[in-house]
Design a protein around this nucleic acid. Sequence first.
DNA 1: TTTTTATTTAACAATTTTGTTAAACAAAAA
DNA 2: TTTTTGTTTAACAAAATTGTTAAATAAAAA
Lengths: 197, 197
Amino acid sequence: MPLKNTGTEQLIKDTAKRLLFAEGKLHATTQEIADAAGVNRTALHYYFRSRDLLIAAVFQEAMQGLSQRLDECMESEKPFREKIDHLITVFLKDMIAFPYQETFLITEINTLGKELMNNIQSGPVNNFLKQVQDEMEKGTIEKINPIHFLMNLFSLLSYPLIMAPLYRQLFQISGKDFNALINERKKMIMHMIFKED
Amino acid sequence: MPLKNTGTEQLIKDTAKRLLFAEGKLHATTQEIADAAGVNRTALHYYFRSRDLLIAAVFQEAMQGLSQRLDECMESEKPFREKIDHLITVFLKDMIAFPYQETFLITEINTLGKELMNNIQSGPVNNFLKQVQDEMEKGTIEKINPIHFLMNLFSLLSYPLIMAPLYRQLFQISGKDFNALINERKKMIMHMIFKED
DNA sequence: TTTTTATTTAACAATTTTGTTAAACAAAAA
DNA sequence: TTTTTGTTTAACAAAATTGTTAAATAAAAA
């Protein structure tokens, strides 16, 4: 166990996170990760014992961070509209920084132990679904299955970012213009949800 | 070039397509593909020369098929509402059969030659975007940037299927129940788009 | 200073994955 | 039948990737 703490362990994790979740290099080798971090490949084994354990550590750290921030949003005492607004901001920020994070989760579920999946708590989500239901009964938002409401929200936020390379090709737009497009979406999504705006 | 045509070449492609795009095994080895197809691994090299060429062939075939079907939808002479209805049906069917197809495209863009990306035609899409614009001016659908309209549509269709394993865990629902949920979506999406329904 | 401890590295070994060669096999053509 | 052609396979080779060992280094403790 590290006592000196030269920051190398965290550097390796952060670098792996960047390669995997930000740049989408889903099968980055240990050599590529070591090179990107500027350390010897053996350092990866020293700190994490094996590639799989490094990946698991990175994944757990990232997932825990995101789901914690989302849970905070969902459990906050804000009025519903502000709560959604905040949730969108938090989630969108994460997606822009790490667009491949969820893709990675999905495609590596088989590889990673399923125990990691089980860490995902469904408590806060279920609570939030009930709130959504309440707002529907109040008439704030359209009446649909709250699960659809949540899936719609995440879909509208995530998918265009995941598919950015494809869409830029398809619509023939530059990276700059595409970013502008993405930044329009928060407002648009709020408008779609709260129709009376 | 094959003259006898024992069906092995197509069998290998279909098997690879299933593993990669349906089961999401994005780094299936040549051995795994060969085993799943019930042929010797050397047969893969006989027909495709290398793993990369096999993958490229599978990818090109799949992408060409999908974009052809979508182009047909977009260029058809149907009234707008029916056209969207049909587009949803076609796309959803493909997504249910091969939920990892687009994910694969995105994560392997770097690996695959970018020439494959350039094959994607933007003509039919641009044409369709103009039709969407027309319908907005007619008042059939809400006025937004047509690109957002299209991204929204594909997002709502694709994302829940890509994330199925995560959502099943999060909402604690069985595969059967989740399928029922997915089948509700077509109607719901039509309702979201054509609000007066 | 010497000793200890944590960290980093180079050299080596093992494993996994891909690619090649040459031979066996099967079906149609000569 | 023999020959030819295409197909399939086993055995081998090469490359890429991961994992291990032991030595070098550097900083704190004795």
